[in-house]
Write a protein that binds this DNA or RNA. Sequence first.
DNA 1: ACCTAGTTGACAACGGTTTTCATTTTCGAC
DNA 2: GTCGAAAATGAAAACCGTTGTCAACTAGGT
Lengths: 134, 134
Amino acid sequence: MTELRNTKQRIAVTAALSATDRFQSAQELHLAVALAGHSVGLTTVYRTLGALADSGDVDTVISTDGQVLYRRCIEPSHHHHLVCRDCGRTVEVEGPQVEKWADAVATANGYVDVSHTLEIFGRCSACATLRTPS
Amino acid sequence: MTELRNTKQRIAVTAALSATDRFQSAQELHLAVALAGHSVGLTTVYRTLGALADSGDVDTVISTDGQVLYRRCIEPSHHHHLVCRDCGRTVEVEGPQVEKWADAVATANGYVDVSHTLEIFGRCSACATLRTPS
DNA sequence: ACCTAGTTGACAACGGTTTTCATTTTCGAC
DNA sequence: GTCGAAAATGAAAACCGTTGTCAACTAGGT
């Protein structure tokens, strides 16, 4: 069915993903690949990330301003993210009781085919010390 | 400070918001206003919705494809939403234990200035019966 | 009625993402 | 190794939701 080929471009993109533990936009990753010395078209970056997201190899988060952020998946099972608003540094978190609560609420209201999005945004300690309030 | 005036445009937009309990995009609301017989510019719809969102009079949700959906707020306190993927029909839900869990996880990891997004998406019973699987 | 700061809307601009399509590349078959 | 079909690439254009521009308009106090 799906025939995937090993191209230098895909290798470069996955390498860039593996080089960081932060959520990054497609454009940031495109820049990261360029800085790593490889030339990959922006279109290809988008396509590669889309494919990886479909296959579940990267996690995606929609930032509060609507753009998609990507990050390589460490924990393969279902989990959520604690993301730094400034630098993207991320901690994977799990909340089994939250999952159960969400499903229970949905079925109690007659909703089927249920999914949920749960992300926690904040400022990590490193970024918090940088921008000290007045 | 903020001096708000009562214009027919704002009245028309808030009326359209009050006429439904569903999450709708700015463009859908713009159409709804037009169908209601009023002529309001799309720019004004966006501005009005933005203002209402800032003042907390409407809830906003970012759909999975990145666009902003608006809905008039029934419950003024902090809550989350169970949204139908197809028609936007929405139930407001509360999960105090989830709030506490999110804050605890964030502070345990040294994150400050914490917020979170939690939305449940599914298919409401009405829409579920419409598109019966094969 | 008048004044003025707030408001409107047609249109252009913006920015992230997707599509197009001609060219290039991978990789199994020979 | 090399051939060739299918997959992949990338530059540019299209897309689409959203925001900015700015001249004309209006609500509401005096």
